[in-house]
Amino acid sequence: MKYITTVGEKTYAIEVNDDQHVTVDGKTYEIDFLSVGDQSIYSLLIAGRSYEAHVELTNEAWQVLHAGNLYEVIVMDDRAQRLAQAGGGTLALSDEFSLKAPMPGLVVSSPVDIGQEVEKGDILVILESMKMQNELKAPRTNTVASMRIKDDDSMEQNQILVVLN
């Protein structure tokens, strides 16, 4: 099976030949790969060298944590790659942005109002969690379309707080 894998600005053509072989950019390596303890920790032996990393999928990107370094990796198989290219035109980025609670917490304050113009970096909500007050900021310049919160509201993780449009 062939994959196109992207790490930051680098792209690799990777083919998983069978359980013992993988080809990266035309070069074939002998591997021994297994999940350790039925968890998202994986052990990989490449020609006798031993690597262990934490690998998990979040929001369409793979997060690989190895030796204290976090890599965001996008893996597409041939089919997904073709689909993405074919459907690329219709997947126009929406201007709408929903600020979601990154963790459960309590709304301390929200210094913006509906209809207000906000600039990138402006504070939208101050959310208290684990004794810390976390300032959640606007990712780009936009207008506040709706506020789903008021002060002292208790929020679940991923609950929508503010919508920009």
């Binding site: 099976m1 690799y12 793979w62 990796v73 893996v75």
Partner: peptide, 20 residues
């Protein structure tokens, strides 16, 4: 600079392949 992007790419691909 992240030291080993190729390793990360290989690991993520192997996991994705296995899960698929």
């Amino acid at each position: 600079e992240l030291p080993n992007p190729q390793l990360a790419a290989a690991l993520a691909t192997l996991v994705a392949h296995r899960q698929g």
